[in-house]
């Protein structure tokens, strides 16, 4: 069995979504890409799904994902590879009129 230890990453949860993670501000999940990690997260905490994904099962427009200090939009998007110990942050952008 290959070890999966190397692909355990920490996901940082924004304050209002912690009601869906039993109050946890960070959640450790396994995943080799951002998509893997986020899908595992919403499987574990189903209430998060509608907040992160739209009707087309894509990340909502205002949901930005960072790996460390890097916005995945400037990497490989949700296919951005992860290494063990990476910190993945869910970061909202906000607009209005």
């Amino acid at each position: 069995m290959p070890t999966t230890e190397a692909t355990t990453v920490t996901i940082r949860i924004p304050t209002p979504l912690r009601s869906a993670t039993d109050g946890a501000s960070t959640v450790e999940v396994k995943g080799t890409t951002v998509n893997d990690a986020l899908r595992t997260l919403v499987d574990q905490y189903p209430e998060l799904k509608d907040n992160l994904y739209n009707e087309d099962d894509e990340l909502r427009r205002f949901v930005n994902i960072y790996v460390g200090d890097d916005d995945i939009r400037f990497g490989d998007g949700v296919e951005t590879p992860l290494e063990g110990g990476d910190e993945v942050s869910i970061v909202p952008s906000i607009a209005g009129g």
Binding site: R60, S93, I94, A95
Partner: peptide, 15 residues
């Protein structure tokens, strides 16, 4: 009062 744009662009409930 919130505008239609405010509603369309709001991120998460809970804020």
């Amino acid at each position: 009062a919130p505008s239609e744009t405010d509603l369309a662009e709001a991120p998460f409930p809970g804020y």
